[in-house]
């Protein structure tokens, strides 16, 4: 398998973490891709120019990250990252969707801050930061139910909180979300997470 890879993308990180958790990491060749660079975007198999994108051994190109995660889960025999059925399945997938939302909104803020100050919308930044704050509130409300499971819900929530810390070091969410903070500080020491810390994103090219 070949993975279009960027060391700055949290969605790529999710796929790499998923591969490590299922023992598939050694079967995936990484192809460095910078989605901020036009040349890499135009050459990408994903017409949207996004990473991650995974080419399977059958030569099929799959994306975006939830589809890739499901594929890796399938290759690993199933029921590893995504519980096969019932409440556990919906919890894992819902948490992934919520955490993906945090990531998307954080990226929207990041992209907005790259604009020239006079073209920047402070309202848009504030709107997205409010969405992120509400999502973290929702995670705190269910944090007592988070444990040690290595399903895609837990893993993506940890990746999202790391990304928030990286991009908004001023946002002291831990003080107001103590249960989530305790869970996160323990969970983020997992090998797959500790081994995949992100590099800062580059400016667009």
């Amino acid at each position: 398998m070949r993975l279009r890879y960027s060391p700055a993308s949290p969605f790529v990180r999710k796929v790499v973490v998923a591969a490590m958790e299922t023992g598939l990491d050694g079967r995936i060749e990484r192809i460095a891709t910078d989605p901020m660079k036009r040349k890499d975007r135009d050459g990408a198999p994903n017409p949207l120019g996004k990473v991650p994108s995974l080419e399977t051994d059958d030569g099929i190109e799959i994306y975006d990250s939830p589809v890739i995660v499901e594929y890796l889960d399938h290759v690993a025999g199933g029921n590893r990252l995504i519980p096969a059925s019932g409440r556990a399945r919906w919890d894992a997938l819902r948490r992934q969707a919520l955490a993906d939302g945090i990531l998307e909104n954080t990226i929207l803020v990041f992209i907005e801050t790259l604009r020239k100050p006079d073209r920047r919308s402070e309202n848009w930044i504030a709107h997205n930061r409010r969405v992120i704050a509400r999502a973290i509130d929702a995670l705190e409300a269910e944090a007592a139910g988070l444990g040690e499971a290595a399903d895609i819900g837990h893993l993506t929530v940890a990746i999202a909180l790391d990304f928030v810390d990286q991009h908004f070091p001023d946002q002291d969410w831990r003080a107001t979300h103590p249960t989530l903070a305790r869970w996160f500080d323990r969970y983020r020491t997992r090998l797959s997470l500790a081994a995949t810390r992100l590099e800062p994103a580059s400016a667009p090219g």
Partner: peptide
């Protein structure tokens, strides 16, 4: 499933 969810992901991404 892969065919259907991939098409959905492309359409949603666009």
């Amino acid at each position: 499933r892969r065919h259907a969810t991939q098409l959905e992901a492309i359409a949603d991404g666009i």
